[in-house]
């Protein structure tokens, strides 16, 4: 019973994080100094109240817990839904459901795999086709060079999946938290669509700009 509330609350945390993350990424257009300075500033956020990188570690723990709770709830609820209809329809028509709503689960799996790759790629820098670097800016620029078009392509697909996930997720989370009154449904749908589009475009701009040589 609390599983869906858990999905909604962790979903809200993750959406807020994504928006902050996207904002940071866009600093790439202000040059290497601004981008690296921003990344470094995150480590010193809250200092001296918090130890060096203290804020970063709190954020990481909250995010990891949110992701794990989100995935756990999704798996349990998916299994429950499977059990709720074991005999499938011979013919099934979609009446009004959106593409985003019925790809939530598949999209979620793709996003989970992408997040693992993304952390290994640009955070930990274990996977570094463009060469390792201590500068986040160089990691980004090196990682999306035109010869690594397949990396950019994977990012493209994954970020679009995130967009679809948010399109239905924001709407669904708001309903689970009890906000979707009939009078507000139009607005919530618009906001869900806006967040999905802004996050998708915002995350795609930096890698595409690098691949097409606008940022070097």
């Amino acid at each position: 019973m609390a599983l869906k509330s858990a999905m909604a609350v962790t979903g809200v945390i993750l959406v807020l994080y994504l928006i902050a993350h996207m904002y940071g990424n866009l600093k790439v257009f202000s040059g290497q100094e601004a981008f690296d300075g921003y990344a470094h500033g995150l480590r010193e956020l809250g200092y001296p109240l918090l130890p060096e990188s203290g804020f970063l570690w709190i954020a990481r723990i909250v995010l990891l817990a949110s992701v794990l709770i989100h995935i756990y709830s999704a798996v349990v609820l998916t299994l429950r839904a499977r059990k709720a209809r074991t005999d499938r329809y011979q013919v099934k028509k979609r009446v009004q459901r959106t593409y985003a709503s019925y790809t939530m689960r598949y999209g979620g799996i793709l996003i989970a795999l992408f997040v693992i790759f993304h952390i290994l790629h640009l955070t930990v820098n274990v996977i570094a086709p463009g060469g390792k670097s201590d500068s986040p800016y160089e990691r980004l620029v090196g990682g999306f060079q035109p010869e690594f078009w397949y990396v950019t392509l994977f990012y493209l697909a994954s970020v679009i999946a995130v967009g679809f996930h948010l399109r239905h997720g924001v709407w669904s989370g708001m309903a689970t938290l009890g906000f979707n009154k009939a009078s507000r449904q139009g607005k919530i749908n618009t906001v869900a669509m806006a967040i999905a589009v802004v996050v998708t475009v915002g995350f795609l701009l930096p890698p595409l700009a690098v691949t097409f040589g606008l940022v070097s």
Partner: peptide, 21 residues
């Protein structure tokens, strides 16, 4: 029964027009 994922197919087929909200 399964859990609701707020897709809205229920309200779309309801012969009595029970609102989704």
């Amino acid at each position: 029964f399964g859990g609701c994922t707020n897709i809205g197919e229920c309200a779309a087929v309801c012969p009595k027009g029970i609102p989704l909200d």
